[in-house]
């Protein structure tokens, strides 16, 4: 009772008078203080490097000599660089291998966990690969997928399937890298979906059941639409992350064999740190940055990220 009247008085005060302004300022200050650590991180680790990269992209900096301003030459060169567009194509293909399967598997695991397995152990096992770093995951799989001495081929031949080349064949390398990434990330995706499922009111399912809805109808009509905000989050972050695939490639294939896994970030890395063309590498990073903003905006638009179905 008292709480409610206090709320009212605050609301009444908000619109007018010296006290209201001061309180609003205080609230704003508290708000800023809350976001300050994140803001510092954002400025130091994202905004500043982005501006700096944009600046470097207009120079011919080779890391060792002072940089010289060359205008938009790097962008012109990039336009004509077949290897850059090849690497974009490889990255796109990787995203296509990666995202649908990872999302679908994540969703299936989450629904199963929600309906069948309530145990914490199950959830812990599912999330475990995500706790390993990409580099370690890459190293472990590099050993497991070795064509001659790896465990995977030993298992396959044991059940009568011929041995595969995995990371050593241009046809299978990109799929294998995507597989490693799915293995590592699917648990996290499942966990996000699982949390989303928990927030769907159970009475909706009860009502649907009374109406005689089947399990699959409930999944299509209730679960999927109500999971949309989580779906947006999962897709936006995983698509952006997928376009930035680097560490698994660096550990397992280094862009090979025959350039079949030279994704755009690996090509940027090669240019920056192996060919000492930091200016050119920065120009590519800027193009990738703008491209990813567009992809994200498109996704948000298509998935109506700002509205909810839970009226």
């Amino acid at each position: 009772m008292t709480g409610r009247s206090a709320d009212k008085s605050v609301n009444a005060d908000k619109g007018s008078g010296l006290f209201g302004n001061r309180l609003r300022r205080k609230e704003a200050l508290t708000g800023y203080l809350f976001i300050l650590p994140a803001l510092i991180g954002l400025i130091a680790f994202f905004a500043f490097p982005t501006i700096r990269a944009a600046q470097i992209s207009l120079t011919n900096w080779n890391l060792m000599r002072p940089a010289h301003w060359i205008g938009f030459d790097n962008y012109g060169k990039l336009w004509a660089d077949g290897k850059f567009w090849d690497s974009m194509q490889i990255t796109l293909l990787y995203v296509i291998y990666n995202i649908p399967l990872q999302t679908a598997l994540g969703l299936i695991i989450a629904v199963l966990a929600d309906r069948l397995a309530k145990s914490v152990l199950f959830r812990a096992v599912i999330i475990a690969p995500y706790l390993i770093s990409n580099v370690v995951a890459g190293l472990v799989w590099l050993l497991m997928l070795d064509p001659l001495i790896g465990l995977t081929n030993a298992f396959l031949t044991g059940i009568g399937i011929p041995p595969q080349s995995f990371l050593s064949s241009p046809d299978q390398a990109l799929i294998s890298v995507a597989g490693i990434s799915i293995w590592r990330h699917v648990g996290f995706t499942a966990l996000l979906f699982y949390a989303g499922l928990q927030s769907i009111p159970r009475d909706l399912y009860e009502a649907a059941r009374l109406d005689g809805a089947s399990e699959s109808a409930m999944f299509r009509m209730i679960t999927l639409p109500l999971l949309r905000p989580v779906m947006v989050f999962v897709l936006v972050t995983s698509v952006v992350g997928s376009f930035q695939v680097f560490d698994v490639i660096a550990v397992t294939t280094q862009g090979g064999p025959a350039n079949s896994t030279r994704a755009v970030l690996w090509y940027i890395y090669e240019n920056a740190f192996q060919f000492s063309r930091m200016g050119y590498a920065s120009a590519m990073s800027m193009v990738l940055f703008v491209f990813l903003i567009l992809v994200t905006l498109l996704q948000m638009r298509l998935l109506r990220a700002d509205s909810s179905d839970l009226g």
Partner: peptide, 20 residues
């Protein structure tokens, strides 16, 4: 000799060590 698809990235030393 193993083909390039069979060799993997672990290389010749590992294959020698593992009697391949």
């Amino acid at each position: 000799m193993p083909t390039v698809e069979q060799t993997g990235r672990l290389g010749a030393e590992t294959l020698m060590f593992s009697d391949k």
